[in-house]
Write a protein that binds this DNA or RNA. Structure first.
Lengths: 337, 337
DNA sequence: AAGGTTTATTTAAACGTTTAAATTGATAGT
DNA sequence: ACTATCAATTTAAACGTTTAAATAAACCTT
């Protein structure tokens, strides 16, 4: 249309060769008038680089997933990458939290095949729980970064530090003078549950305080069990001065159990949570809890990935990010006693 | 490698021509051994059909967005499409809810360009609020379906029925015997707020009940204003028998305002909400609220889109889905008085 | 005006796939 | 043995782009 060769148009488009002003203008006018758009598919056919990265999520409806995706997107945008999303939708497929994910190898293969077919430059896998995954992503010759989970074999990972933050939080509570602790842990067998408990126990051990085993119970991560468990902890004469629930949903259960027993928070019993979840946003008093670096996990995952794509970074790295403690009034400001 | 032409391999792969068993086996063996994957980019270069649809979301961190995406994904998976996600990240860019989105025309153009460049077969645009959008997506010759918002010009949309469900909910409350209503509306100028109010007013009018204007206030969609507004409504001698909050966050504010004034829910004052949000999941008594058909909006958006892609459906359709009322104990079961 | 240099443009091959058309090979019917 | 038919395979063009190499055009030098 402009009376020039396709090569000339390509050079105008990319500025990869000197072009006379006359020609450039002519070509640019035609481009505007016709609304021409370059076909990225054809482009990456030659270059074998798509500037596309695949995000493979176990389930997009799980609260942390969109936050992480958002973080990935921010860096991707900045670095000129685009993302293609594959959603395994495991929440609606999986029977139990502990069902072996290998049962979904086929689904994963299908999605990975398609991402590889799209010539993605790399893949970020976002888990629904933080746990170790068996080798499920077949080698497509491109780097893979795991986020909110970590691989048994090849691949990097980005997670947050469950143990450390609970160690800190517990330390803070000890400093406030609390001595008789109750813990409502997560689901038996869940890794973050174990790590958080470990952080707690480490702080207690260092403080030289023995925690009676009947004060450390499991709450199954949910409101109902959290409430029941809190009931058990509080319905004794020597009930804990503070209950550390390992997530906010259970902490809400603790609030309700306390209210039921006529106990005031934080005067009679203090409470802490974990997650900084919507569910506990407006309970009163404000819950002391832990904010996870979800967006930041996305940043780091994407940065790690691009560094591996460009070969600047080695393949097997694990990044563990710190969490932030959110203050609140569910613990006495002036300290205990 | 198999000693056959590329055409033969293509025919084996797609089963589009008769192939001898010997050849097929040979080719399939090589495919297995080498881990060959077909390049979808090269494929769609000829066919000009990518079986890719673009999801352009205003902000993925807004609660309804992942739900809608999940719905889209379910249908996409079933129909053999894949989705490429573009996240405008407007929440972190936009100054106020009512800022003119035209300020972000450039961002949208960039994303649409890239989606078009990826040869998507269609686009689903997911809004962050339900509202009318000016013509922002330049014509790429592919169908566009709007979800959780609707276009001024060309394009279909999928939304839910704010007015109807509030008409129904109000009717239900009238049937229970409630007469003195208080309303905590959404933000002034927000369309869903206006529609919900309209449904309420219609039901009241049909029942022949006058609602004093001082009983219909705005709460800004948030907890704080909801609580303050509830305080104003309740701190009168002839306070409403029931307060209908136009979302759950404000409803939680109503709970707290009532508690503060020593009023019991539902004995002294009943409460309803809207959204079925996490924030109100474990308040007591259980909140009567409205569940929005978020997943279903995704289903319909995707179905509408594929029908338009295949030309079976005309371009400008608007689908309005019904909501579901969630029962609860924040309203007297036996009816009022 | 011839030659040399620089600048601008075109040519042609390549990327990995599909598909209409052409070719080859085998089988069957005369 | 020849032709017709059918099945299996190959050839070659096409999709839209990039880029090394070739060519053309313009401008200097002498």
């Amino acid at each position: 249309m402009a009376g020039v060769s396709v090569a000339t148009v390509s050079y105008v488009l990319n500025g990869t060769a000197p072009i006379s002003d006359k020609t450039r203008e002519k070509v640019e006018r035609i481009i505007r008038e016709t609304g021409y758009r370059s076909n990225m598919l054809a482009k990456s056919l030659r270059t074998n680089e798509s500037r596309l990265i695949g995000i493979l999520v176990e389930d997009i409806t799980v609260w942390h997933t969109p936050q992480i995706i958002d973080g990935i997107n921010e860096i991707a945008e900045r670095q000129g990458y685009h993302t293609i999303l594959s959603n395994l939708r495991l929440m609606s497929k999986i029977a139990s939290r502990f069902e072996d994910i290998s049962n979904y190898q086929e689904d994963i293969d299908r999605e990975v095949d398609m991402l590889a077919g799209m010539q993605v430059d790399g893949i970020i896998y976002v888990g629904m729980h933080d746990r170790m995954l068996p080798e499920m992503i077949s080698d497509i010759g491109k780097p893979v970064v795991y986020c909110y989970c970590y691989p048994m074999g090849r691949g990097s990972s980005v997670r947050y530090d469950n143990e450390e933050v609970l160690y800190q939080l517990t330390g803070l509570m000890l400093k406030k003078g609390y001595r008789r602790f109750g813990v409502i842990g997560g689901l038996e067998g869940s890794e973050p549950a174990a790590l958080r408990l470990k952080g707690f126990q480490r702080a207690m051990k260092e403080a030289g305080i023995e925690v009676p085993p009947e004060n450390v119970l499991c709450g199954g991560w949910n409101y109902k069990e959290g409430r029941e468990t809190a009931g058990k902890l509080l319905d004794r004469k020597d009930f804990p001065q503070i209950i550390m629930a390992m997530n906010d949903e259970m902490a809400v259960g603790v609030y309700d159990a306390a209210t039921e027993l006529g106990l005031k928070i934080p005067e009679d019993v203090a409470v802490t949570g974990f997650d900084h979840a919507a569910i506990a946003q407006h309970i009163s008093p404000e819950l002391v809890t832990v904010e996870r670096p979800l967006q930041a996990m996305g940043y780091h995952a994407m940065e790690l990935l691009t560094e591996q794509i460009s070969g600047r970074e080695e393949e097997n790295q694990d990044i563990i990010l710190p969490c932030r403690i959110i203050p609140g009034a569910s613990v006495r400001a002036d300290g205990y006693r």
